[in-house]
């Protein structure tokens, strides 16, 4: 089913989406989207939503299951506190992408902004995954408690911007960040450390990137040509010695 967003208020647009789903639509195409917030908020089940234009903040917040594809750029808060499902963004996305995300995947073709993957968590088989094709801003994976973030830095051969911002993974106590290229230790925040890639790590990266590359029709071999670095927590309880009782 097709819905033209144009200049509709987000409340109106999201109500139309709710109604369409209630009437049994399993596939929605949103056209002419102009910054409307909260699209796909809390949606559950096996839905497919294609978005043309630029969705507004908090796209797919709390989402639990659907696949959302954006043929354009996205703004702040993509996949905020999301439970499961897939978000594919063919352009760039901005700040706090995947904030407190607990499951599902977010694949971004281009760059991502500040505070991406802050406080991502793992629970049992739910392992949230974020892959950015470009570079990431400051505070990537702060307080990260689980999940996987992969930063590829494609199209950055000229190294015009840094692959990673400053203060990467401050307070990290779970999960892993894989970076395609060199990482200077000075970029890391307290609690995070670099580790050599193990065979398991290589397998995880290959598995995730196989899906990522097929989504964007990229060559997996070319992407895997460059070596990856791993950033993980120095301790599972970084603040264990911070407090005392008596």
């Amino acid at each position: 089913m097709r819905i033209v967003a144009n200049y509709k208020h987000f409340k109106v647009l999201n109500e139309e989406i709710q109604q369409a789903i209630k009437n049994g639509a399993a596939q929605l195409t949103l056209e002419d989207v102009n910054g409307q917030s909260f699209i796909a908020n809390s949606l559950r089940g096996k839905l497919k939503i294609d978005i043309y234009g630029t969705p507004g903040n908090d796209l797919a917040m709390f989402m639990d299951g659907p696949k959302v594809t954006v043929f354009g750029n996205a703004q702040d808060g993509v996949g905020n506190t999301m439970s499961s499902g897939t978000i594919v963004i063919h352009g760039d996305a901005r700040d706090i992408l995947g904030h407190s995300m607990r499951g599902g995947k977010i694949f971004v073709r281009g760059d991502v902004g500040y505070r991406v993957g802050i406080h991502m968590k793992t629970y049992k088989s739910n392992v949230p995954i974020i892959v950015a094709g470009g570079c990431a801003g400051d505070f990537l994976g702060e307080y990260m408690a689980g999940g996987i973030i992969i930063i590829l830095g494609l199209h950055n051969a000229a190294k015009k911007i840094d692959l990673l911002g400053d203060w990467v993974a401050t307070g990290q106590h779970g999960g892993a960040i894989y970076v395609r290229g060199e990482v200077d230790d000075s970029k890391l925040g307290d609690g995070a450390a670099q580790f050599p890639m193990t065979a398991d790590d290589e397998m995880i990266v290959k598995k995730v990137l196989t899906e990522y590359c097929s989504e964007f029709s990229l060559s997996l071999e070319r992407v895997l040509e460059t070596e990856f670095k791993k950033i993980a927590p120095g301790s599972l309880r970084p603040y264990a010695a911070l407090y005392t009782c008596e």
Partner: peptide
């Protein structure tokens, strides 16, 4: 809480 057994639950 939906976090693994034994990890700190940190609220920023």
């Amino acid at each position: 809480r939906m976090i693994p057994v034994g990890t700190d639950a940190i609220s920023p």
